[in-house]
Deep mutational scan, measured.
Amino acid sequence: KRVEVKPYVLDDQMCDECQGARCGGKFAPFFCANVTCLQYYCEFCWANIHSRAGREFHKPLVK
C-alpha cells in the first residue's frame, strides 16, 4: 500500500488571490496543486483564474 500525504491542504486559509474580498471573508475551499499555481482560491477566483488559457485543466483539491 501507498499513502499520499498532501500537507499543503490546510484548513482555514484565505483566498490567495482576493484575501476574502470577493467571497465575503469566507475561507478558500480550493487549492490548486499545479506547480504554476500552488495557491488557495475561493470559488469566484478559482473560476476566474482557471478559465484562462493553460489553466483550464487544473484540478482543485477541495477541503
Rank of each mutant, 00 (worst) to 15 (best):
T36E: 15
C32A: 00
V3A: 14
F57G: 15
I49E: 03
S51I: 04
W46Y: 07
H58T: 02
G20S: 04
K26S: 09
D16A: 14
A33L: 04
Y40C: 03
Q13C: 07
G24K: 10
V9D: 14
R2L: 04
A28T: 04
L38S: 12
V3H: 11
K1R: 06
K59S: 12
C15H: 03
D11F: 07
A21P: 02
E43T: 07
E56Y: 05
L10H: 06
V3G: 09
I49K: 08
R52H: 13
V35C: 05
C37Q: 00
S51F: 05
E56L: 05
K63N: 09
Q13H: 09
A21L: 06
P29G: 11
V35R: 14
K6T: 10
F57S: 15
V3M: 09
A47K: 14
Q39T: 12
N34V: 05
K59A: 08
F27E: 09
K63I: 04
L38Q: 13
E43C: 05
E4F: 06
R22V: 04
D11S: 08
Y41R: 01
C37N: 01
A33P: 10
V5N: 13
T36I: 09
E17T: 06
F57T: 15
R52I: 13
K63V: 08
C37R: 02
K26M: 09
E4G: 05
F30I: 07
K6W: 04
Y8P: 14
C42I: 00
L38W: 13
A47H: 07
H58I: 01
K1S: 03
V3F: 06
K59T: 11
C18T: 02
V9C: 12
P29V: 06
R22A: 08
F57R: 14
K59M: 08
K59I: 05
C23W: 03
A33R: 08
N34W: 06
N48R: 13
P60M: 07
L10N: 12
A21Y: 04
Q13R: 12
G24I: 03
G54L: 07
R22N: 11
K6F: 04
C18W: 00
I49L: 11
G24R: 08
F31I: 02
E4T: 08
Y41C: 04
C18S: 01
C37S: 02
F31E: 05
P7E: 13
F30R: 09
P7F: 03
A21E: 11
A28W: 03
F57A: 15
I49P: 03
V9T: 11
D11V: 10
V5C: 10
H50V: 00
R52S: 14
G54E: 10
E17I: 08
N34M: 03
N48K: 15
G25E: 06
H50N: 00
P29D: 09
Q19I: 03
D11I: 13
R2I: 13
P7V: 01
G25V: 04
C42W: 00
W46P: 02
C37V: 00
E56A: 04
C15L: 02
D16P: 08
F44V: 13
P7W: 02
C37P: 03
W46C: 03
A21T: 08
Y41M: 10
E17K: 08
C45N: 00
P7N: 12
S51D: 15
M14I: 09
C15D: 01
F27S: 11
C32G: 01
A33M: 07
E56P: 04
K6P: 09
A28K: 09
Q13P: 06
D16I: 13
P29H: 06
C23S: 10
R52W: 06
G25Q: 10
E17Q: 14
W46R: 02
G20E: 03
A53Y: 09
D11E: 14
G20T: 02
G54V: 04
V62F: 15
K26V: 10
E56K: 13
H50M: 00
P7H: 09
L38P: 01
K63M: 08
F30A: 05
N48W: 10
I49C: 03
A21G: 09
V35Q: 12
K26A: 11
R22G: 04
Y40P: 01
V9E: 11
V3P: 11
L61Y: 06
Q13L: 05
L61R: 11
F30W: 13
C15F: 02
A28Y: 00
F57H: 13
C15Q: 02
E56G: 09
G54I: 07
E17G: 09
Y40I: 02
G25W: 10
H58N: 02
L10G: 13
